[in-house]
Computed example of a mutant assay.
Amino acid sequence: MQEKDKTDNEGRLVVSLAEKLGIAANAANIYGKPIERDGVTIVPVARAAYGFGGGAGTKDKEGGSGGGGGVSMTPVGYIEIKEGNTRFRSIRDPQSTVKIVAIGSLFAYLTAKTITAIFSPNDKKKGKKHKKK
């Protein structure tokens, strides 16, 4: 019967973690409180990602359990409501711009290097003298 109690406790631990993280990543946090100014209403929008884990084990008739989790909320844009019309406006992530510039720069460098290698004389031919026919 003691083994069943451990299993029940482990299950409760995981359910408790899931509930607490679910509360943190609810719709009120993903869609922020509307802000109204001069006839325009703005509703902030965020992306939420969360995860959790837990476990338990026994060794030499001693048991233990633990768990943890986390929530990440990233702003992605806002909903603009004006004169009965609604539209979503995205917010560009500066980190994605840096990644695009870095990848583009690397691609340009490799392309230039390849073109230079194609049109430059081959090192093997430099040491050889060519006979005129």
Rank of each mutant, 00 (worst) to 15 (best):
M1K: 15
Q2M: 13
K4N: 15
K6I: 10
D8M: 03
E10N: 07
G11A: 07
V14I: 09
V15H: 02
S16E: 10
S16D: 15
L17P: 00
L17E: 00
E19T: 05
A25S: 06
N26S: 05
A27S: 12
N29A: 02
G32T: 05
P34L: 01
I35V: 13
G39M: 10
V43Q: 08
A46V: 00
R47F: 05
A48P: 00
A49R: 03
G51W: 00
G51M: 01
G54M: 07
G55F: 09
K59C: 08
K59S: 09
D60T: 10
K61T: 13
G64A: 15
G66L: 04
G67W: 01
G68Y: 02
G70T: 01
G70Q: 02
S72D: 04
S72Q: 05
M73W: 01
T74A: 03
V76R: 09
V76S: 04
Y78C: 05
I79E: 14
K82I: 01
E83Q: 08
N85G: 12
T86D: 07
F88A: 14
I91V: 07
D93H: 02
T97L: 12
I100K: 12
A102E: 14
I103S: 07
G104T: 11
L106H: 14
F107A: 07
A108D: 11
T111S: 14
T114N: 08
T116W: 13
A117R: 09
A117D: 10
I118T: 06
F119G: 10
P121C: 04
K124I: 12
K129F: 08
K129P: 03
K131Y: 14
